[in-house]
Design a protein around this nucleic acid. Structure first.
Length: 649
RNA sequence: GGGCCCGUAGCCCAGUACGGAUUAAGGCGCCGGCCUUCGGAGCCGGAGAACGUGGGUUCAAAUCCCACCGGGCCCGCCA
């Protein structure tokens, strides 16, 4: 017998048995939902119901008495996976598994379904776009931003495994003002060829240019403020200026030559800010020179990004240039349509979108989880020079995405929650209610460095490449220490998947809603609760299977009587349920937890009990099938979060 | 000022959507053990927790409700 969800079979059986007993004993009672949960310890059974505590109120009888009566009236002929049922505690009904049958069902199911085990499919698959990463082409991807592709890619893998058609999209923000800043600096330098990894080459150009332009702007503002003599203003500008000046000192000591060169070139420009704004406007208007410059800089960055992401096995089905939606007229069209709604008004020379009004008229607040008396800020749709703004462009992009898919998941940091809300409300305003309902903002929290926030504008960040390099280097040291006999090539290969796996695991394992402080030992963990630990466990299982002699016919599942064996079986059998939960509620960390916890159990088992040498042969065979099932579940779970499951390491 | 998120051992972190039993689960670090046995990146044991505070609802609260405290994010003609 094979089941896609072995533990769920048991659960269903318990539900039916209990429902039937209830019907027989108290036909007048109507219960829509039968509560069943996992008891805290194995001795109390594998599922338990607290039903009697609720019944007690209606029936004016003690819970334990009710539990006893219900258990007594159960029809044991209906028991298949249930071994026996017992009233317990203050009124629980405990269901005990028939482990002999359950072991056979679980192990056979894992073995038969093999690469598909755990990946329970939805009945009605849909097309889903997962937009993730979308780091701006300004500088290398840093570790804070790296949380995004790790989560996004894992979510995409989960949804695919669930049977959906998933498209992974990268949204290239080449229209933002910052892109013009870096392009301006690059142009001033005479558009040099990179002498290092291209994104690492562009990064300092962006940071220094941005800093110099900022200082230039603040100085001009300061002069203006001095003329009109607004004291508060002067103090505020001075404070900002001081900060940027100290950043510039940092940058000039870090990149003396580049800094000097950019400083000289930019100083020639009377008003760099104006030049940048002009470039930005020219790009939006499709002016060929501007286009070739900005695309060139962006592409250099992406060349680097692709290398980085490739290393960690993240790829995309589509790279979407934001500028295409501006140049193709989509954004203008959206503007036009929005203006036709009653929700757009003119204020101090720019068009504003009144999200609050939409929410009120369409009665959206409760639906969107907002308090009734919270006022949603309005959204500015365009700059006064006619250029577009990010969220407006995103509306056009989102409409385009919904032509290709029924559901859109945007993996974007929490700091953009309001913008994502306004985007959704704009879809309602335009009449696309279904799109709005199926637009999901998957928010994740920030990664900071101890003591301060990461800031790409200030050049304070640790790059994703650095983190991976360090992880691989550390892994190489570990491998050399533990397996000195291996060839250098083998060591490097192992170090690579161990180091990269460790990074990936560390970023997927924490609840996305929690902020993370980056420390090296968070990521460079090779012990319990890390990818290397799970990989090691997997390799260990493979090793046993390699060494085991070809087994004879009989496999005595009934001999799997040890508590730890039962715990492993339960864990294996629940993998599909964990997978479904992780996918439906978008909680990729559940998969990491599952793999780690199964590895823990397996190692305990491994140390306590012999497998190959177990007597009699039937037991040894049964344990071998258990080891094989663990191997399969670990591999499937690791693959789901994009980590290599090695046979040796 | 308003909105949202987070608060669980010295440190990190699960459990909170859907309230349930015993002793609140792990990891790091610390202390003590385990290599003549299938891979020690491992295993076993020990010490370590007012689940931010105070109320409330309930037979039952880390979990639900209210208030407060601490930290973060957002409220831009940035993205």
């Amino acid at each position: 017998m094979v089941s896609e969800k072995p533990f769920a079979e048991f659960q269903l059986e318990c539900e039916n048995v209990l429902a039937n007993a209830l019907e027989k004993l108290f036909p007048e009672i109507q219960i829509t939902h039968i509560p069943l949960e996992k008891p805290p310890i194995l001795e109390l059974g594998q599922l338990a119901s607290s039903l009697c505590f609720e019944l007690a109120k209606q029936l004016h009888e003690k819970p334990l008495v009710l539990a006893k009566r219900l258990v007594k009236s159960m029809d044991e002929k209906q028991f298949s996976l249930i071994e026996h049922v017992a009233p317990a505690g203050g009124g629980y009904i405990n269901f005990h598994l028939n482990f002999a049958k359950f072991a056979a069902l679980t192990i056979e199911s894992v073995k038969q379904l093999d690469e598909a085990y755990g990946f329970s499919k939805v009945k009605e698959p849909v097309k889903i776009i997962v937009e993730h990463t979308s780091v701006n082409p300004l500088h290398p991807i840093h570790i804070g931003q790296a949380r995004n592709p790790m989560l996004g890619d894992t979510i995409a893998r989960l949804l695919m495994a669930r049977g959906h058609t998933v498209y992974r999209h990268y949204y290239i923000d080449d229209v933002g003002r910052q892109t013009s800043v870096v392009a301006y600096g690059y142009d001033k330098l005479g558009r040099p060829k990179p002498d290092t990894k291209p994104d690492h080459f562009i990064g300092p150009i962006y940071t220094i240019t941005s800093c110099l332009v900022e200082i230039n702007r603040l100085k001009r503002e300061l002069n203006r403020a001095k003329i009109v003599q607004v004291e508060d203003e002067i103090i505020k500008i001075n404070r900002e200026l001081d900060e940027w000046v100290s950043i510039s000192a940092e940058l000039s000591s870090k990149y003396p030559q580049l800094f000097e060169e950019l400083l000289n070139k930019i100083s020639e420009d009377e008003n760099p800010e104006n030049s940048i704004n002009r470039l930005n406007k020219a790009y939006e208007e499709g002016e060929p020179k501007a286009k070739s410059l900005i695309r060139k800089v962006s592409e250099l960055c992406f060349e680097g990004f692709k290398q980085t992401l490739n290393r960690i096995d993240v790829s995309y089905d589509s790279w979407d240039w934001e500028s295409d939606f501006v140049l193709g007229g989509h954004v203008a069209e959206v503007m036009q349509k929005l203006k036709q709604t009653p929700y757009v008004f003119m204020q101090t020379g720019v068009w504003e979108f009144n999200a609050e009004d939409v929410a009120q008229r369409l009665n959206l607040k409760t639906k969107l989880g907002l308090k009734e008396d919270y006022t949603i800020p309005s959204l500015t749709l365009a700059r006064s020079d006619g250029t577009t703004l990010y969220t407006t462009r995103d509306i056009a992009y989102t409409l385009w995405k919904f032509k290709k898919a029924q559901k859109v998941i945007n993996v974007i940091g929490v700091e953009q929650t309001l913008a994502q809300l306004q985007l959704k409300i704009a879809l309602y305003a335009l009449g696309f209610h279904q799109y709005a309902d199926n637009l999901v903002h998957f928010a994740y929290n920030l990664v900071s460095l101890p003591g301060y926030k990461m800031s790409s504008r200030r050049g304070r960040y640790i790059t994703f490449d650095e983190v991976m390099d360090e992880a691989v280097k550390r892994a190489y040291d570990e491998v050399s220490k533990r397996s000195p006999q291996l060839s250098d090539a083998e060591k490097r290969k192992i170090a690579d998947f161990v180091g990269i796996g460790a990074v990936r695991y560390a970023l997927v394992e924490v609840d996305p809603s929690k902020p993370v402080v980056f420390t090296w030992d968070r990521v460079l963990n090779f012990e319990t609760n890390s990818a290397p630990y799970i990989q090691y466990t997997h390799a260990r299982a493979c090793s046993i299977l390699r060494k085991a002699a070809k087994k004879s016919e009989k496999t005595a599942y009934t001999l799997l009587k040890e508590k730890i064996e039962h715990e492993i079986l339960l864990s294996l059998a629940s993998f599909p349920d964990t997978f479904i939960e992780a996918t439906e509620y978008l909680k990729p960390n559940l998969i990491a937890d599952f793999a780690n916890s199964l590895a823990d159990k397996f190692n305990t088992f491994y140390n306590a009990l012999p497998v190959i040498k177990a007597e009699p042969q039937g037991l040894s065979n049964a344990r071998l099938t258990l080891v094989d099932a663990v191997r399969i579940a670990l591999r499937n779970a690791l693959n789901l979060i994009g980590i290599v499951a090695p046979e040796k390491m």
